[in-house]
């Protein structure tokens, strides 16, 4: 086995560990603040997976948009919805039993399906930059979804600004 493959395997399992453990913390932490910070490591680990899958552009987008934008938005949401520092993000005791049982059952079904499936695999091509190809496809074949998504983004931003505006007379 070549040294490069061993390196890829090591990197894959380290990234796996980071993603799974931080996702476990994000789901089971009592404090929502802790969960949001654990989610940061999950998202960065996902960027690592994208690098391993030779999707360099997506890895950068993941870090910039998810870790830099969406996570900050979530933290703003947590900080804006708590009155005092003491109760900051601390949830009441939640019963995870039913949810965990349902989740494990679903996980077993998923693993069964993955193990059963005859996945048609091709040997992966060597890593190449993807940015030019993605840009060309977005402006030719996927031009209409691209434009629609920009309008969607505008509508969502205007809608959320409208929802949180101060009501008149208050």
């Amino acid at each position: 086995m070549a040294g490069k493959e061993i390196a890829i395997i090591i990197v894959f399992y380290v990234t796996c560990g980071v993603v799974v453990i931080s996702a476990l913390i994000a789901v089971f932490a009592r404090s929502v603040i802790n969960a949001a910070f654990a989610l940061f490591f999950t998202l960065c680990g996902m960027a690592g997976f994208y690098f391993l899958l030779s999707a360099d552009f997506l890895a950068i987008v993941q870090i910039v948009v998810y870790a830099g934008g969406i996570l900050v938005l979530l933290l703003f949401g947590i900080l804006l919805t708590h009155r005092t520092l003491e109760e900051l993000g601390i949830e009441k005791r939640t019963t995870y039993i039913a949810g965990t049982i349902a989740g494990l059952a679903f996980y077993l079904i998923l693993i069964f399906i993955i193990a059963q499936g005859l996945w048609h695999q091709i040997p992966p091509k060597p890593m190449a930059p993807t940015t030019a190809t993605i840009g060309r496809l977005l402006l030719t074949k996927y031009l209409l979804p691209f434009e629609i998504s920009s309008v969607t983004l505008l509508a969502a931003l205007i809608g959320s600004a409208y929802l949180v505006r101060r009501k008149e007379g208050k």
């Binding site: 799974v20 929502v32 979530l74 947590i78 949810g99 349902a102 996980y107």
Partner: peptide
Amino acid sequence: AILFVLGLIAIISRRNAVGVLI
């Protein structure tokens, strides 16, 4: 699959709305 199931557990079990978003 592991990530999906963890997200599902959070959606089902969390009572904090921001936790559901996570």
